[in-house]
Design a protein around this nucleic acid. Sequence first.
RNA 1: GGGCGAUUAGCUCAGUGGUAGAGCAAUUCGUUUACACCGAAAAGGUCGGGGGUUCGAAUCCCUCAUCGCCCACCA
Length: 851
Amino acid sequence: MPALSAQYSPKDNEEAIYKKWEASGAFQPNADTLKAGKKPFVVMLPPPNITGVLHMGHALQDTIMDILVRWHRMQGEPTLWMPGTDHAALPTNKIIVDQLFAEGKTKEDIGREAFIEKTEEWYEKTGALILNQMKRLGASCDWSRERFTMDTKYVQSVNETFLQYYKKGYIYRGARIVNWDPKTQTTVSDLEIDYKTEKAPLYTFQYGPFQISTSRPETKFGDKYVVMHPDDARYAQYKHGDTFTAKWINGEVMATVIKDDSIDMKFGTGVMTITPWHDVTDFEIAQRHKLPMEQIIDFEGKLLPIAGEFAGMKIEAARPKIAEKLEQMGLLVSVNKKYEHNVALNDRGKGVIEPQVMRQWFVDMSKLKEEAIAVAKDGQVRFVPSRWKEHFITWMENVHDWNINRQIWLGHRLPVWWKKGAHGTENEEGNFVVSVEKPKGDYEQDPDTLDTWFSSALWPFATLGWPEQTEDLKTFYPTSVLVTAREILYLWVARMVFSGLELAGNIPFKDVLIHPVVLAKNGQRMSKSLGTGVDPLELIEAHGADATRFGLMHQMSFDMQQMKFDPEAIRSAQNFANKLWNIARLLDGLEDREQVTIADQWIASRAQEISQEVSVLLTEYKIGEAARLLQDFVWSDFADWYVEIVKKEGSTSIARGVFADILKMLHPFMPFITEVLWEHSGNTDMLITSQWKFESHSKSDAAHDTVQQMDLFRSAVSAIRSARILFGVSMGSTVEVYIPEGVAMPESFERMAHARIVGEKKETMRSYPIATGGVLFLHSDEITSEALEKGRALLDARAQKIEAEITAVTQIVSTMEGRAPEEKVKEKKDQLVELQKQLQDIQDSRALLVL
RNA sequence: GGGCGAUUAGCUCAGUGGUAGAGCAAUUCGUUUACACCGAAAAGGUCGGGGGUUCGAAUCCCUCAUCGCCCACCA
């Protein structure tokens, strides 16, 4: 056995271990257990953007998945962690457009085909860098199954989905109001809009007999309807459908009164005019009352000819000029300059959204959402933490039809073919064919591409071969757990649920784990521009992958919504890894011994308890708690106490057995170092595929009082250490102690306490109480009178504190009696007895102090 | 506007009805050959404020405050 170095070096081990795992085929689902019909454990990696790099959110998420996957693999389940990447249409599109811009070109200059070629080159060049970064973290994905949302098979799945939805009548084309981003020239989903509060003047104008307010006078050219609440007494004289003439920007208009419930009577004058083409609420009102609509602003954000003299102007420039003209016409009633309203911005690129009525493709959600709601309600799909269940259901209940086409070139093109010249014109109807292949005749493909989420919604089954009924699909679908961030709960998770149910005929996953958002320690979002970003690869470089993983888990709990990341946790985890390493070094150096001590029995039974607790915690996804429990056990019990004993006495085989159990329990959390040490201790099989079964279980049938004896031992050693400091006795000098009859101590007692046990209690001995089981006396010539005085004061203080507590508890017991459950009262009484015993100990000690 | 979450030691956080916990930092001591990426000891908290339920509340309920997030988008 080669000697271990004094410190663990992650860099010298991680790469080699990873290669070994990969070469062994351990990352692939085990063929034997599959054949034996064992139920597989399956996790889909939420496909990161192919052009992305690993950030702390990924590191957290990937660690959680890897822990679950490794743990299930060790339980002998066929385990599949399916990796892959997403084509990231919008960000990649922007990258390519920017590249072209730098060359002084536009995408139109080079044409669609050349553009697609360029993107393919880009994908080729960047590769799936992020997946390789995951390997650094130790992710045990089945790389042989890696997929990309734009690979040939995946494109087929996407097309098939479109076709099936269309056949079922879920996909329709309709003129609807959508979020148009003039900057990037595409529609944007509701979920991908950010609202920013901005100050803008709120103008109030005279409009016929009414006063109307608006922050957007530039949209008001075509307004011909005034809307008010039917119950608004102020306007009771006006009836629905009444008409009147109003002086307006470009001359007189004939306007009509509309009564609608959606009007807020308390806002402004309670009357508004509507611009259905450019406002969602107005659009809905117009639809309800079947009112005509007219476009005022074009797709570039410029005013159309309806604006008369303002035609062709950008809206931002036109706004004050229009207000000015209305003022000159004497129509401006007032301006509120402090008015605040929300401006809709595109998440990506931050273009200001201009709602437009456009002919678009939609998925009718009415039936799909019911299916998804049902499986959330009956718990087939479970959310952790459970509060997300309600969020999910509420969102689903209110979901609108899904606008699925985007006006960018990058992405999955719609399998829709238009008769030449028909697309985008008034006579669209009936002039298209939905088909993967180009139909015979003069057809051209719809220029639009699909929303990225349309394709990612298929991830759990498309990656397994759907629509073909492949072996993989039959074996691994539905998957077990989805681990994801809450920001894509609606965008992605919800859509996977209904897509899975509708297309693959089953839920896509059973449990959805929503992990916290990783923030910088000061609570700010992690971002490069703020300088708050932390690069997980740098952490791995500096502290090792195991420490990075363990540190993250040590800090994490699924109950958190955000996790303020403290890099200190990683350093601390590195120390822990090193501790583990050095325990192994010590055990290496021990000669074999077989006699069993109470310490051996104690540690074996502790290990058994811990392994059971860890299993329970992991079943409940309490990964952070499991990590904390393990660290505490290894460091505080195993290293600080047991190892100190077993280095001189006891059974080395139990020590090594329990240590092997520790390596197993820690392996899901710290895969590299545990694998290195496992191999080092002579195992021929690999830890990654070893069984989640523990040696200590067979050796832990210790007598019940073993634990009590060890407690006594530990508190005795601690008490002597405290007393030593209290009485000013240096560590160098050995103190004499008397231990009462019948108390068994491991031989190591004298060594660890720096004490010598003397046969009988001496009159001159100074005494000191210990927490359990009687009084322990200690003697040393170094104890001075001043030290004794100090000690006495301290004992007095303690006695007082306990007396106070006894008074309090006595009171509680008397009030509890007859009211609280009997066992609870008994607990309290036991506590009282315990307190009184402690007080007696202290008083005894106090009495024996010879000054 | 609606909803959710957080508020516990200097910092990051555990702890869901029974004597307030960990890691890190700060303090004191210790070069005991596994580890100074260590060990030992001691210190540190009216559990955000107020009210209620209960024999008993960090924990359950109400309320207020502060911070954060999600949803909705109001002319």
